[in-house]
Structure formats: structure tokens, C-alpha cells
Amino acid sequence: MIEKVYKYSTSDDKVVEKLIMDDNVNYIHMVFGKDEGLPEHYSNSNVYMNVIRGKLSIALNDQEVHSYEKGTLLEIPYNTKMNVGNKDEAVLELIVVKAPAPQNYKK
């Protein structure tokens, strides 16, 4: 078999699944219920966030919180302060891609 197959959760339970973490890319699947999310942190590479379902609430650097619905793809630059979460009733599901992989990021 040439291809490598990855499976991810299809549940509504909170999850942060690091599906691909190699030298090329980080590919992460996330699911958050209301008032769940990530601790505040700085992006360690270029980050692409694809909202699969629900509504993403995100504050970047010193901006106010912005909301993005399913079907939205965000590009967030390296070294941006991020506060990521779900402030709505509906389950939030995201795919996060970091490229290049953080250990290979060059300014």
C-alpha cells in the first residue's frame, strides 16, 4: 500500500488530535464544545485554520474576538498571539495545518 491512512474522531467530545506531525507539516483535528478551546499561545509557524462546523471565536494579538463560521479558512502568521475557542452552543470542529512544520520554520 503506497498511501498512509489516518483516522480521526467523529464524536462531539473535546479532542485535539495531532494526526500528522512530520518534517513537512503538522495537521491537527480539533473539536470543542461551548466554552472549550486552547490555552492562549503564540503561533510557532504559519497556521491555517479551517472551520469545518460550528463557529470559531478567535482573538489575535490585541484584536477583539472575531467569529468565523463553517466554510471559513484563516491564515495566521508566525508569532501571532492566539486565543482560540468556542463561545457558541454548536460544536466547533477545526482542521489546523502548520506549514512549514514548526521545527523547520525559518523567518
Score class of each variant (00 low, 15 high):
residue 81 K to V: 04
residue 31 V to H: 06
residue 36 E to G: 03
residue 15 V to W: 00
residue 5 V to L: 15
residue 7 K to D: 03
residue 65 V to A: 10
residue 45 S to K: 10
residue 81 K to H: 08
residue 35 D to M: 13
residue 47 V to G: 07
residue 64 E to N: 12
residue 61 N to Y: 07
residue 60 L to H: 03
residue 15 V to E: 05
residue 20 I to K: 10
residue 90 A to S: 14
residue 53 R to E: 08
residue 34 K to H: 02
residue 90 A to W: 00
residue 57 S to A: 13
residue 68 Y to I: 02
residue 103 Q to E: 13
residue 3 E to R: 15
residue 87 K to T: 09
residue 58 I to V: 11
residue 84 V to M: 04
residue 8 Y to M: 13
residue 1 M to D: 15
residue 7 K to S: 12
residue 84 V to I: 14
residue 56 L to N: 08
residue 27 Y to N: 08
residue 8 Y to I: 05
residue 45 S to G: 12
residue 18 K to V: 02
residue 75 E to N: 12
residue 69 E to K: 13
residue 93 E to Y: 04
residue 14 K to Q: 14
residue 82 M to S: 03
residue 48 Y to K: 15
residue 35 D to S: 13
residue 11 S to Y: 11
residue 57 S to D: 07
residue 56 L to M: 07
residue 97 V to T: 11
residue 105 Y to P: 05
residue 100 P to R: 11
residue 36 E to N: 08
residue 30 M to D: 03
residue 104 N to T: 09
residue 12 D to T: 07
residue 27 Y to H: 13
residue 100 P to Q: 08
residue 86 N to F: 05
residue 82 M to D: 00
residue 31 V to D: 03
residue 7 K to F: 09
residue 76 I to T: 06
residue 54 G to M: 05
residue 70 K to A: 08
residue 12 D to Y: 01
residue 14 K to V: 12
residue 106 K to L: 02
residue 53 R to S: 11
residue 90 A to K: 14
residue 57 S to N: 09
residue 71 G to A: 08
residue 21 M to C: 13
residue 19 L to N: 10
residue 2 I to Y: 14
residue 32 F to H: 06
residue 45 S to Y: 00
residue 56 L to T: 04
residue 73 L to G: 09
residue 90 A to H: 08
residue 26 N to S: 14
residue 63 Q to V: 04
residue 34 K to F: 04
residue 43 S to Q: 10
residue 29 H to W: 00
residue 97 V to N: 12
residue 11 S to N: 14
residue 48 Y to H: 13
residue 5 V to I: 14
residue 10 T to I: 04
residue 15 V to Y: 07
residue 66 H to E: 12
residue 78 Y to I: 07
residue 100 P to K: 11
residue 13 D to W: 11
residue 51 V to M: 05
residue 65 V to E: 10
residue 53 R to L: 08
residue 56 L to C: 07
residue 105 Y to I: 06
residue 5 V to K: 15
residue 88 D to R: 11
residue 14 K to L: 11
residue 91 V to D: 02
residue 62 D to M: 09
residue 73 L to Y: 10
residue 69 E to I: 09
residue 41 H to S: 08
residue 104 N to R: 14
residue 21 M to V: 15
residue 41 H to T: 10
residue 36 E to M: 00
residue 15 V to N: 02
residue 45 S to T: 01
residue 95 I to M: 13
residue 92 L to V: 01
residue 98 K to T: 06
residue 36 E to T: 04
residue 10 T to R: 15
residue 22 D to C: 10
residue 56 L to P: 05
residue 21 M to E: 06
residue 15 V to D: 08
residue 17 E to M: 05
residue 45 S to R: 02
residue 38 L to N: 04
residue 39 P to K: 15
residue 55 K to T: 08
residue 56 L to G: 03
residue 48 Y to N: 11
residue 19 L to F: 00
residue 2 I to A: 15
residue 25 V to S: 05
residue 45 S to D: 00
residue 103 Q to R: 15
residue 98 K to E: 07
residue 39 P to A: 15
residue 70 K to I: 01
residue 21 M to W: 02
residue 76 I to C: 00
residue 48 Y to R: 15
residue 68 Y to A: 05
residue 32 F to R: 03
residue 85 G to N: 07
